[in-house]
């Protein structure tokens, strides 16, 4: 009888899980947040104008804080070392979606002391810097196109390498 403990290490398995599952969260305030291109970056809905969004980011290495509208108008709330409400909202939602460990590791913050977005920002000594709003916004628009593509019939056998997981106990 072969048991789990006899299994070879994860590196010699075809279905080793690489990406931890992400948690469902409300998307109204922060429709998009990702860890890519060396930044925690996202898109935050404006509280006052439904047609406007802010693009916020924190550099993974230098912790530079950036926030502006998608038309590159700087965010009035961001000044000096203080994160604006958009950045705070983005970090909160990133923690909900990816978990504090993953976000903490990405920003180089000791993960075991961190459980909320506030904890993370408290441990970051960032200064205001510019954010490549156009690049991040383009990534968000590309992200949205995935919901616009038609669904398809016919097998995609390669998805056998990507089982759906995350069932409750």
């Amino acid at each position: 009888m072969v048991l789990v403990s006899d299994r070879p290490a994860d590196e010699r398995r075809s279905t080793t899980r690489v990406l931890p599952p992400v948690e469902a969260r409300k998307l109204t305030k922060v429709p998009f947040v990702e860890m890519a291109d060396g930044r925690l970056q996202g898109v935050v809905s404006s509280g006052s104008d439904p047609a406007r969004v802010y693009v916020s980011s924190i550099g993974a290495a230098e912790h530079g804080l950036g926030c502006s509208t998608n038309n590159n108008r700087p965010c009035g709330g961001l000044g000096g070392r203080w994160a604006c409400n958009h950045i705070k909202a983005m970090v909160d939602e990133a923690v909900k979606q990816y978990g504090p460990e993953r976000v903490g590791r990405f920003l180089g913050v000791e993960a075991d002391e961190v459980s909320t977005g506030r904890d993370l920002l408290d441990r970051i000594n960032g200064t205001a810097s510019s954010t490549p709003a156009a690049v991040v916004f383009a990534r968000f628009l590309r992200h949205l196109t995935y919901l616009e593509l038609p669904s398809t019939s016919g097998p995609i056998p390669e998805l056998h390498w990507f089982p759906a997981t995350g069932g409750a106990v």
């Binding site: 948690e23 979606q97 919901l147 669904s151 398809t152 019939s153 097998p155 995609i156 759906a164």
Partner: peptide, 18 residues
């Protein structure tokens, strides 16, 4: 036999929402 249908999505669409 098998029959498969598939859709593209984003990472925040998870669980029963798929």
């Amino acid at each position: 036999v098998r029959t498969a249908v598939s859709a593209t999505k984003v990472d925040t669409v998870v669980g029963p929402a798929v």
